[in-house]
Simulated scan of single mutants.
Amino acid sequence: MRDDELLTIPEVMARLKIGRSTVYDLVRTRRLASVTIGRARRVPAHALVDYIHAHLEEAV
């Protein structure tokens, strides 16, 4: 995964193995950064990595 890659919501769902509504909830609550391009929502790959690292730190 490249740092400058933009992921679709289904790609984020697959990588985190969570549902669509959960991904949108993470975006809505700003726990997962995203950008809107036209009508499409994209999640920068680095934002997904940051979210995973933050979530791991919370668990410890």
Rank of each mutant, 00 (worst) to 15 (best):
M1W: 08
R2P: 11
R2F: 06
D3S: 09
D3E: 12
D3Q: 04
D4L: 07
D4Y: 10
L7H: 10
T8M: 12
T8H: 08
I9E: 06
P10W: 10
E11Y: 04
V12Y: 03
M13N: 10
M13T: 10
R15H: 13
K17N: 13
I18C: 05
I18V: 15
G19W: 11
T22C: 04
T22S: 11
V23F: 04
Y24I: 06
Y24N: 06
Y24Q: 05
V27A: 05
V27W: 04
V27D: 00
R30E: 14
R30F: 02
R30G: 03
R31F: 02
R31C: 00
L32F: 06
L32S: 06
A33R: 15
S34G: 09
S34H: 14
S34Q: 08
V35G: 02
T36L: 10
T36R: 15
T36D: 02
I37W: 06
I37Y: 12
G38T: 11
R39W: 01
R39D: 11
R39V: 03
A40D: 12
R41K: 13
R41M: 03
R41C: 01
P44W: 05
A45Q: 13
H46I: 05
H46G: 00
H46K: 14
V49E: 15
V49P: 00
Y51M: 08
Y51K: 00
I52F: 04
H53Y: 10
H53D: 13
A54V: 00
A54G: 12
H55C: 07
H55E: 14
L56T: 12
E58F: 07
A59F: 01
V60S: 04
